[in-house]
Design a protein around this nucleic acid. Structure first.
Lengths: 195, 195
DNA sequence: GTCTATAGAATGATAGAC
DNA sequence: GTCTATCATTCTATAGAC
């Protein structure tokens, strides 16, 4: 079980100690390499050169780690999302958010992909309300108030394309600039923002 | 370790008994739900209503199961791939193969996605030579002999889009016809086959 | 914050009977 | 092809000392 959420429902409100942050970074990298189910307390402890008990002292269950690491990553898009929601022009808002999403995905390839495709995390995203709300805000900012099936399919295609491409073996040797440019172009076409 | 491969390097040559087939189907479904690392012999056995030992009698290691299930799925594209390679027109070949790939992905959503994104399977695909060869043939048939970075990036985007979208929560309620049509359209645009 | 030590369950895998 | 029984290992998790 996770710690009780603060009242605002915002992500990343619970401040993390430096120790906790190091644990989450190690865990996230291992999650990307072996999947959540393939990552144990022992592996995280070995990576940091400490014992399992030291990790348990910070995170009582594995779910706690997964929630914290997901929260930390999602919250990195928080500022961009808030800025997009504050924008009066829908076009500008989308462009702004799209850039932030692609930037994050390209800079943290493994992390971005793990968050989207690991079955354990997918299940958590669907079950944990703060995550649901955040992801829904993200979607709405990208497609506007059109919540019809076609618009939702656009977002599904968009997020699959971005999240999948950044870790695809055939894209492994593509530099960040090229990848970012290509993904932005593809994303705009998917959303119908340009030809 | 897997059984020694036959000389031709073709996929799916080893005929499967009905029992083995039932095991692989159960395993594949569990892989899709919990990931390979989150699926145990016990879970497969429970699904089929037998004991672990019965499963071990057919597949001596977990890797054997993963290889067999991957082989069985990939081989479903074997005929379409061979047909595409036999086509003289590159355009027709690509169109043919693209249809087969999208069809398979839409009809076996979970399976298609698991094969592409599960870390255990990804590692196996990269290490097992018959898989490497088959996947390379697939890529080559889709983009022709242009093996430059841009063409490979096209395939990365293409396969991520297809493999990711079919299991995306936002696409869960989209019917097969709509999904197939939309993916085909998107795929053609990615490969530059139409506007 | 980190350690040793441990409990209890589950895991991958094997041997041998039917 | 399936079963019971077993083994060594690993896993999540806890207790208590430093």
């Amino acid at each position: 079980m996770a710690s009780p959420e603060p009242s605002t429902g915002e992500l990343g409100e619970t401040p993390l100690s430096a120790t906790q942050d190091r644990i989450l970074s190690a865990a996230l990298e291992l999650f990307g390499e072996h999947g959540v189910n393939g990552t144990s307390y022992q592996m995280v402890a070995d990576t940091l050169g400490v014992t399992k008990a030291a990790i348990y002292h910070q995170f009582k269950t594995k779910d706690d780690i997964v929630i914290a690491v997901t929260e930390r990553e999602l919250s990195k898009l928080g500022d961009a999302l808030a800025a997009a929601e504050a924008e009066k022009s829908h076009t500008k808002a989308r462009e702004l958010l799209l850039n932030a999403v692609v930037d994050h995905a390209v800079e943290h390839r493994r992390a971005a992909s793990t968050l989207q495709f690991d079955p354990v995390i997918v299940r958590l995203l669907a079950a944990h309300k703060p995550f649901q709300l955040f992801v829904e805000r993200l979607y709405r900012a990208l497609i506007g108030d059109d919540t019809g099936p076609e618009a939702r399919l656009d977002v599904a295609i968009l997020s699959s394309t971005i999240g999948g491409t950044v870790v695809h073996p055939l894209a492994a040797d593509i530099d960040e600039e090229t990848l970012r440019a290509r993904l932005l172009h593809t994303a705009r076409r998917i959303l119908g923002l340009s030809g």
